[in-house]
């Protein structure tokens, strides 16, 4: 029995080790490179932990005016689309969760179906529509596009949460003469804070990380996002792996932090959305 327990422990440890190595080794290599001086970057055999770590790569990236502009654009676009996504999704989810109206299931079905539309097949019409309404290469255009791309999941997450809130709470408020918007704002939203956190996180990461749409709908540095900056980095600066890796680390930090903060809510919401008892 003791022998079996030991074997079990070894297997678990081995499993943990393998998962951590597989997930983190590439990331660790990026981090390590980002702190290396140019000559150490190309050393053979590779140095896992740089002997003379330096912040030069980070300084170069942070002081680069183009990079500052990319970051600025990304922050404007992702924060605005996050806020608007939350408002629009909460309203819609409340409507779907609490009201019975004609065509409800058709509308809901349309939102869910749009989730699985291949993004690559929508890039042409997005381009032409934004061009026609003169929103091509504007922050506003990007914000709107990211809201709509995220809506199916944001609505689904919020609706799943609202459905679980007992309706009795609202009935007493109705007797007190509260209107539907007051009920939503004063009662539902405060209870749903974790779900709203998950929605905000999803919308934020979506906009922060996105590449394809940004590639098509932005035309110059005034609107281009950090993902474009990093995918074209070598063209502009020659391949400087140290700088590229430092930029990559900087771009990942907000996404990873937000994720770790809200991951439980998101994971619960996503999976509750796909398995409905």
């Amino acid at each position: 029995m003791r022998k079996r327990k030991l074997r079990y422990k070894i297997l678990i440890t081995l499993g943990i080790l393998l998962i951590c190595l597989y997930s983190l080794l590439p990331i660790f290599w990026v981090l390590s490179t980002s702190f290396k001086q140019p000559d150490v970057i190309f050393s053979d055999p590779p140095q896992w932990i740089p002997k003379n770590p330096t912040f030069d790569n980070y300084k170069t990236v942070i002081q680069n005016p183009a990079m500052i502009q990319y970051f600025k654009n990304t922050v404007i676009i992702s924060l605005s689309s996050t806020v608007l996504s939350v408002v629009i999704a909460v309203l819609a989810a409340y409507g779907f969760s609490r009201y019975k109206f004609r065509g409800r299931s058709v509308f809901l079905g349309m939102f869910l179906f749009s989730r699985i539309l291949p993004r690559v097949s929508l890039i042409l019409p997005f381009f032409i529509i934004l061009r026609n309404i003169r929103l091509l290469n504007t922050h506003l255009g990007m914000i709107i596009v990211y809201i709509i791309i995220g809506l199916p999941i944001t609505i689904w997450l919020a609706k799943g949460f609202f459905d679980k809130i007992p309706i009795e709470i609202e009935e007493s408020a109705i007797l007190d003469g509260c209107g539907p918007l007051t009920i939503l704002l004063r009662i539902i939203v405060p209870i749903s804070a974790p779900a709203i956190g998950a929605i905000a996180m999803y919308a934020f990461i979506l906009a922060w990380n996105e590449l394809l749409l940004a590639l098509i709908l932005t035309l110059d540095i005034s609107t281009q996002t950090i993902s474009i900056g990093l995918s074209y980095y070598k063209l502009e600066f020659g391949i400087s792996w140290g700088n590229l890796m430092a930029g990559s680390v900087l771009m990942s930090i907000p996404a990873v932090i937000v994720f770790i903060f809200f991951q439980k809510n998101l994971v619960d919401g996503l999976t509750a959305g796909s398995v409905k008892e």
Binding site: I19, C20, S23, L24, P26, I27, W29, V30, I205, W208, N209, L211, S227, L230, S231, Y233, L244, M245, S248, M251, S252, A255, V256, F259, I260, Q263
Partner: peptide, 17 residues
């Protein structure tokens, strides 16, 4: 959480990695 991290980092970053 560690197992989920490759999925969280931006795809541009994992591409560059």
């Amino acid at each position: 959480i560690i197992a989920l991290i490759p999925w969280t980092i931006p795809s541009v970053v994992s591409g560059n990695t």
